[in-house]
Structure formats: C-alpha cells, structure tokens
Write a protein that binds this DNA or RNA. Structure first.
Length: 490
RNA sequence: GGUAGCGUGGCCGAGCGGCUAGGCAAGGCUCUGCAAAAGCCUCUACUCCGGUUCGAAUCCGGACGCUACCUCCA
C-alpha cells in the first residue's frame, strides 16, 4: 500500500494521488454491458482495465469491493416516446422471453470475460433486480424538487438541478458541458413535449400496453430510465460516496453526468471520488460500436470468424494487445497490429517459461532493484501498462542471458526476480500462458522426438526430415535447439 | 455549432523540457546436417509554421488533418 499510485481523474482532468475514502477499503464501480448482443472488443477494454485496477489494488493490500453491473432493462432505443426497451426489442425479434435474451448474453459475456482472464467482480447486480431501489431514488429526487411526473413518466429536471448547484458543481461538471450551449445545440427530437426541457432525461418511463418489460411503480406500470440503475446499485453496495467509478469514454456524457446529477439530487453528493474513462477501440480510425455495425465480437476474434480477420486470435493475445496501449488512448485494431502483439506475447511467455529452469549462480550481475521500482512506477503512473510491459521485455533478454550463462543471479536475487516477474505478469497484468498440451500429447511427442534424435545421431537425415515434414502437415512445428528439440502446435 | 482529445520511425504504440520506451517488420550475425525456430546486434522518428527557452516530440500561438461526445453505445 506504500506505492504512490496516481489516477487520472476525469472530473479534474488531472492525475491525482489515489487516497481511498476509507482505507484499507476501496469501492469501485464499473458500468457493465447491456446484455442484448455478443460482447465485442470494445467491451473487453474497460473490463480488462478495471481488472488490472482491481488486481493491483488487491496486490497493494486494499480490501476491494468491485461492483460491475449487468444492464438488463431500461435502455431506450432512443429518447422518443415510442422508445422501446432494447432487450424487449431483441426479444420480440427472436420470439423469446426478454429474460431469455438477458440470460443468454449474460452467459456469453461471462464466458468471454473468463477467457480473457478477467476476474469476477465482487458483486454483479442486475438492473432488473433493483427496481425498488431505483424507485426509491426517484422518489427522493422528486421530493427534493429536481424531478417531475408527467403522464406516468418521471423526468429529471436539469434546470432545477443546475439552479440549485450553481456556483458549486453545475450540471456538466464532468463533461465540461455548459448548460447554455447544450440548450442551443441539442437537436430537436420529436415527442419530447412531456419534458419541460430538452435536456431533461427520463428516470422512469411509462410502459405502453404492448410493452413486455414492466414493473409497478407509484406512477403506474413502467420501467426505469437509463442512468438511474447505476446510481441506485452503486449507492446500495458501495455507499453514497465511493472511490472509483469507471466506464468507456462514450459513457462520460450523458450517462455519468446523469449519474452525478441524480445522486446529488437524491442525497447531495457526487457519488465517486475518482472517475476513470478508457478510450475507444477503433477500426480504420472509427469507433468500434454495436450501433455502428462495425463491432467484431470476442467470439469472432477467438475463432477467426469474421471477414476482416485474417486469422484467429487467442484471448491472451487480445488482452496483451489492449494492455500494450495506455487505456486513455484510442487503439486502432488491425490484423498487422494483432499479429505483432501475438508474436510479442509469445516471446514474453516463452521467456517466462524458461525462467523456471534457470539455476542460480554465486553472484549477481543484474541490479534488480531499479527494475522493480521502475515497473511499479509505471503502473503507479495512471496504469501505464505499456511501460510496464516494456520492462517485462527487458527482463526477457535477461532471462536469455541467464539461460546462456552470460548473466547470473545469486539464489536470493533469483527468487526475487522470479517473484516479481510473477507479480507483474500474472498478478497485476493478468497474463498467463495458454499453451495447452494434454499429457498424452506430451508423451507422444516425447516419443517421436526421441526417435528422431536417434535417427539424426545416425545421420539418417532423410528419415528425420520426413518426421519433421509429416508433423508439420499435422500441425506441429519442430524447433531444434541446442538443448534439444522443442515443439509447438501451429 | 459546442465540449473533450489526437497527429511519433515501414507498422503498432510509450513519452508530460535535457538522459531521446517497448513490440512487430527489415538487415546483419550466432547456432544448425539442411531448414525452421531461437538468441544477439543494427535501424533515431516526432503534421506544418511561428514563439518561449541555453535546450522542445514535450510549453505557448496559429494552420492543416483526424477522432469521440452532444441520440443508443464500453
């Protein structure tokens, strides 16, 4: 916990020292997915970024409660009165129960996150399970005069809110938006006559008779608005004021701005001390997004099943690829970039494996301490995983040096080196070797390679090359080396 | 139009005033029966134009180009 962690706070647009509100406890909340479609590359980024955050805070000794929600109600297709719940729409399309859609895509999301070695959050609440909390919160906002009911729907009164907090934290504090500008530039949308102001947003929407997802409320049957779920659930599990709230940059406005306004209106406080936003993953320089139709699902990446993909990419390649860029930068997807990431990652993992076989020497020719501190400094500097990875590659070349006896470490230092390689690679970055060979395969290959070695000793290169070529056809690459012959699946 | 931000070597990507990451590709070398693999070495870039400074990719001003948000979005 004695590391000097700095986090870029979207609220102040500056890096700030991380000081938890209630050490050693840390509460963090990440806006999870709306489960109406397959998880795509864009979902992976915040999940991985918060995973590293979660892992690191735990590594530092904090007691972390990590809440990541599942949004399974309430997202309007648009802000029109005809607006229809996303889940309901999908359900109608596929002729199934809305909760069936939710279950299916939630399972998919979990499966993909698990492949990416993303740890489960401490609590994963769903919006549909917290309707009562949301209603209570809306009632509080109405009571404080910052929301109003019209025809069974409830809207947040942005101007009333702004008037109340003028001079302190106006509406727009997070996104830098200015009410007057918004009033001038907000597009004219139809069907907004219920609202007092175009900026107002729905807290509760009346459900039409044909609407299938609906809950009873003091204002009649309906469903919650988009932003209220996160406010209600974060408040319930993390308290009115917690440490870190995050999500994709596209949620900064209006979603997170709305959350701040709702929480302040209901209980007077900005819910989070630090707001973190990760940038977009782009495809040909354009944001990858479901609604833009250019999203490639994680499953498609893992299987190579998409016209744009030249090959399949393993989950760890995806994770490594994302970690190689800083979370606040956009990262542009391309086959070339992913293939580069794949090769780099394999090199890292093969060195990591060799490390286990290194034997200690009598003295140390590597000074580990600056390296360890540099690596910590990198992660402390607003999670600069790219820099941290560069130190891992420095370590790679040491490992090769140790392996070839050009370098040496005494027993204590070797243990330290191994320990920190594990800390940085596995514990913090969550990278792991995914080479999977079952034991019978292992045995068979040992047998074949031993036979080939004998043949080679007799200079029967025709046979040895035949073995090599036939194995290649079967998808196994032979790697002759000084220390014997290794192999790998292609 | 408003609000954030970006423009770095063949490609991807760090960088927050001097020490000028890292990965991939490329070239060379080592190893090797050959090949592959692997390892080692090499490769000095910051869109443009001004300014501040002893010194700028890094700060300031301007131009051009690009992106995100302002509608659902990770």
């Amino acid at each position: 916990m004695d590391q000097n962690l700095q986090i870029f706070n979207s609220l102040s647009r500056k890096k700030e020292d991380f000081k938890p509100i209630n050490p050693p406890f840390v509460g963090m909340y990440l806006c999870g997915p709306t489960v109406y479609g397959d998880a795509h590359l864009g979902h992976a980024r915040p999940a991985i970024m918060f995973d590293v955050l979660f892992r690191y805070l735990r590594h530092l000794g904090y007691k972390v409660r990590y809440v990541r929600n599942i949004t399974d109600v309430g997202h309007l297709e648009n802000d029109l009165d005809e607006g229809e719940d996303k889940i309901a729409k999908k359900a109608k399309l596929e002729q199934i129960e809305p909760m069936e859609v939710v279950q299916y895509y939630t399972d998919n999301y979990h499966r993909d996150m698990k492949s990416l070695n993303v740890l489960s959050p401490s609590i994963e609440p769903s919006a549909s399970g917290h309707i009562i909390e949301q209603i209570k919160m809306i009632e509080a906002i109405i009571q404080h005069g910052m929301a109003y009911e019209v025809e069974g729907s409830v809207y947040f009164d942005v101007l009333a809110y702004d008037a109340k907090y003028k001079g302190q934290e106006r509406y727009g504090i997070l996104s830098g938006r200015i009410i007057e500008d918004l009033l001038n530039t907000t597009r004219e949308l139809d069907g907004q006559e219920e609202k007092r102001n175009t900026l107002d947003f729905a807290l509760w929407k009346k459900a039409k008779p044909e609407h299938i997802m609906r809950w009873p409320s003091p204002w009649g049957d309906g469903f919650p608005g988009w932003h209220i779920e996160c406010s209600a659930m974060s408040g319930k599990y993390l308290g009115e004021k917690f440490d870190i709230h995050g999500g994709g940059m596209d949620l900064l406005f209006p979603h997170h701005e709305g959350e701040i306004a709702q929480s302040r209106a209901a209980n007077g406080v900005n819910p989070a001390k630090y707001w973190m936003h990760c940038n977009m993953i782009t495809l040909d320089g354009k944001k990858m997004g479901k609604s833009l139709g250019n999203a490639i699902s994680l499953e498609q990446f893992f299987k190579g099943d998409h016209p744009i993909l030249e090959q399949a990419y393993t989950p760890m390649t995806i994770r490594f690829f994302i970690l190689q860029a800083h979370y606040r930068s956009t990262v542009d997807f391309s086959n070339e970039a992913l293939i580069a990431a794949e090769k780099g990652f394999n090199r890292l993992m093969s060195a990591y494996e060799i490390l286990n076989k290194i034997e200690a020497g009598t003295e140390s020719t590597i000074n580990l301490h600056p390296w360890i501190q540099n690596a910590y400094d990198a992660i402390n500097d607003d999670f600069n995983t790219a820099i941290l990875i560069s130190y891992l590659f420095e370590a790679c070349s040491w490992i090769h040096g140790l392996n070839e006896k050009r370098l040496s470490l005494n027993p204590t230092d070797l243990d330290t080196f191994k320990k920190y390689m594990m800390v940085f690679t596995e514990d913090i970055l969550g990278l792991k070797n995914e080479k999977s060979a079952n034991s019978s395969e292992e045995g068979l290959m040992d047998l074949i390679l031993n036979l080939r070695m004998k043949v080679r000793a007799n200079k029967d290169f025709a046979t040895s090359d035949e073995i090599r070529d036939r194995l290649l056809e079967l998808g196994y690459a032979i790697k002759d080396g000084k220390e014997g012959t290794g192999w790998g699946r292609i």
